[in-house]
Design a protein around this nucleic acid. Structure first.
Lengths: 211, 211
DNA sequence: GAGTAAATGTATACCAGGTGCAGAAATCAT
DNA sequence: ATGATTTCTGCACCTGGTATACATTTACTC
């Protein structure tokens, strides 16, 4: 098994890429809501019906590019070195992401990335789709915690919910600042400090709050 | 000002209620996706255009009933007694909700409530709408924390994200158990214990995790 | 109480996302 | 090459949501 791809398979991949590329190009140029799926299909030289065979919804034309990230936190937890706490592994991974300007951390100011971010925020249906994405990440992380940290199901779910929420908030904050004109390099130091602060809150709790 | 409602106002309220009632009735009977807005409009003896004047989307026909809860956490924080920590006020409020079987805690097993819950979970667009609702609650809570707890903006947002995520997870867990046949009364004790556990995690952090 | 401006409701036509179906076309195995 | 199978296509259709243009109701004024 796993010999050569075969013509049919290769063609499918090319079609997939053609549709995705046409979609991203058109969406970035004119805005998500301003471009119809029919136009995308035409630009990709494919029928509307075929487009929907590859991408179940219009939103997936954009979001499929993040699909890998949905299980990223879960993978990090599962792959952590023995003796490392899940939270430690996740913090290190997030800091790595900041260092590498991984778009998922919100700390990437390449024009393409920023325009994509803008596009998503301007389209409510895309924002909603991202929320679903977040829920998926939460679920995957909960399972990873439950299975590798020997913690009860509810605890795993509570922890996963908190962790994903925090990572998301950090990324949003970074992206917001870059949208306001800060550069990724200039923001890096602050982003690291904020991330450390956020993970400290997760580790040590919120009881420092003013009464 | 604030004299009598006036005929126009009363009529609007009656129309609003008629549409909402027709919608809930039909949705509960046949399922959200199986009923078109045109059918709802007809049952409420109103034109489709008028329906959309009262409810911006089909999903709002269901979700508007929860609108008050969106700012509930924020209100609790703002209304807390002097010297009380936000988290303490929120915990007490949540425990009150469990005691009163407030549907928002997931601990209400009245058939109507359970059917409504089932209906929402079965309709992806409604689930998505609930996520947006959650995001709204998060935002409102963040502002309340920032303005009344004298805490920096990012910290407020991080805390709000964690708190809302945890409350949501608790409610989901309760509702799930009731859906599997447990009674609200029978579940109450466990629900309280779980809530205490969850709020303890928030207060004291996740560092108890296995390494 | 009649007349009028503003608000509200309606009918109709329309757009876009998404699905079902029947058949054409391409790919694959022999 | 041929037959079976997968994929693609064109078309009709449904539904949520909006624009327009017109009718009706309510509230206010004299």
């Amino acid at each position: 098994m796993e010999g050569k791809p075969g013509l049919r398979e290769r063609k499918k991949q090319r079609t997939y890429a053609a549709i995705s590329d046409a979609a991203i190009t058109l969406f970035l140029e004119h805005g998500f809501n301003q471009v119809s799926v029919a136009q995308v299909a035409e630009a990709a030289e494919v029928s509307k019906r075929t487009l929907f065979a590859y991408f179940p919804t219009k939103e997936d034309l954009v979001v499929h590019r993040l699909a890998d990230h949905e299980t990223e936190a879960a993978r990090v937890v599962r792959a952590r070195a023995a003796g490392t706490a899940p939270l430690t592994a996740l913090r290190e991974h997030f800091l790595d992401g900041l260092r590498e300007r991984d778009p998922i951390t919100g700390l990437n100011d390449h024009p393409q990335v920023r325009r994509l971010h803008r596009m998503i925020l301007d389209a409510p249906s895309l924002v909603a789709r991202m929320e679903r994405f977040k829920a998926g990440a939460e679920h995957a992380l909960a399972r990873a915690l439950e299975e590798t940290a020997g913690v009860p199901e509810l605890t795993a779910r509570l922890a996963a919910a908190q962790i994903v929420a925090v990572q998301w908030a950090l990324a949003q904050d970074n992206a917001e600042r870059l949208a306001h004109g800060e550069s990724a390099d200039g923001r890096h130091e602050g982003a690291v400090a904020d991330a450390e602060h956020a993970f400290a809150l997760l580790e040590y709790g919120l009881r420092g709050f003013a009464g």
